[in-house]
Write a protein that binds this DNA or RNA. Structure first.
Lengths: 250, 250
DNA sequence: AAGTGGTCTAGACCACCGA
DNA sequence: CGGTGGTCTAGACCACTTT
């Protein structure tokens, strides 16, 4: 984006249908750079003044773009220090994507134990959820997660193999989203969760150490990248006798 | 807030600890007026220019306050028309507070049938949830809600009697939040929901037409007013065989 | 045409941070 | 102290809606 941009924007203004404000174009340009890893997670972006000069817009316009990105948790702004690319550290995941809270109000991030790991052709459900082609392959992970040693949930995770080459041979960390970001350049920007109450199957009940048929909270989660493409499909079954899923609506 | 305000704000700027930006003070002033029903739900607020002149600040500051309130769903802004006080019509409730969606992706607002209505001293749970004094009284409503004639959920609702005098003698509409707003001047601005999977009790199972012990989704919802005081406590038990609770996270 | 909110700019000053 | 983001102002122009 150069000085020519500003006038290009003028013509876009005149367009009958597609009108995109300047700050939105700036936002999209910056998101593009985040996707392209121009700046690493945790690194500071150039200052508002520098970006404004480079992109040929006013500081106020850059500010509005950055404010929008901060509202979407893509960057973090710190007064007096700068604007930083959001990181996927445990704390962020815990508060942004992990909604399970102990009934005492304390949030605990559960430890994980991998129960199984496999690869293969995506089945119909996986293709549907992850929007994959007919012959695409997936990596599957099954984990048991515990809090204070007590089983809390079992997870079945499906990943497009194309996005995560070699993941199956790696050590699987507790914080998967950090791994996706660090090793594969994939940023989880949003999730869509469908919740149901179901009866635990014999297999899941055994893993969780409860009787088959025990009511468990099923969380069907699809994770999307910055570009809004499906990145991970995760089916979790949670024991909710000592914890709950917290949802705050405004 | 008059011209004197602007200088008062200057001194607040100098305060070591309590620093409140001008736009936030404007926002709080306007929220106060919403609470006091200076403008009815659905009515237009004065234009930005008029508010700016009246409050002795610039139009840009009023704009920032109104933008913040729009982000909190307190007002609705419409280009070329004006800024309006948010209404509690069915559509808004459906998309803002009602997160149950059919598995086919279609949202249906369930019809209601009142199963019971009573009044009395608040029990320990009700006092705790609604932050009531020891001898406070509550109104209790029990409803069965159905979609296409099929039972979908049972609700147990508790309301502080002090906030809703005479409600117990009224016709109970399907959209309770609209009633709270219209007849009692109480606006539900946000909710906090705790979700669990539980086994249906014999009583609830009978109401829902399922076998006792069937897994149901329990939604423990506390509704807060604009001033963030508890207004309603609602315990819902939902059948999730054909629907789910949708949660989108960014 | 008039009035509304939406965008964009430019400049001033303030609060916060680290060197 | 200098640099960062945060607030506030003022004015111009644009897009949308109603008259």
């Amino acid at each position: 984006m150069t000085a020519a941009r500003a006038s290009a924007q003028q013509t876009e203004h005149s367009d009958a249908l597609g009108f995109r404000p300047l700050y939105r174009q700036v936002r999209d340009t910056l998101i593009r750079r985040l996707v392209d890893r121009v700046w690493a997670p945790g690194a500071p972006l150039p200052s508002e003044m520098q970006l404004a000069a480079e992109l040929g817009v006013s500081q106020g316009t850059v500010r509005k773009a950055l404010d929008a990105m901060a509202a979407e948790n893509m960057v973090v702004r710190r007064q007096g220090r700068g604007t930083f690319v959001a990181k996927h550290d445990e704390e962020r995941i815990m508060f942004q994507f992990f909604k399970l809270v102990g009934d005492d109000g304390v949030r605990s991030f559960p430890a994980s134990r991998v129960l199984g790991l496999s690869q293969g052709r995506a089945n119909a459900g996986e293709r549907e959820a992850l929007k994959l082609a007919k012959d695409a392959r997936v990596i599957r992970i099954r984990r048991l997660r515990s809090i204070d040693g007590a089983p809390a949930l079992v997870e079945a995770i499906a990943l497009p193999e194309a996005l995560f080459p070699g993941l199956a041979t790696m050590e699987i960390p507790n914080n998967l989203y950090g791994l996706y970001a660090m090793r594969f350049g994939v940023t989880v920007a949003s999730t869509r969760e469908k919740l149901k109450a179901v009866a635990a199957s014999p297999k899941d009940a055994e893993a969780l150490g409860v009787a088959p048929g025990t009511p468990v909270l099923e969380i069907d989660r699809l994770a999307l990248s910055l570009e809004r493409t499906p990145v991970e499909w995760r089916l979790s079954l949670c024991l909710t006798d000592r914890m709950h899923y917290l949802s705050e609506l405004r």
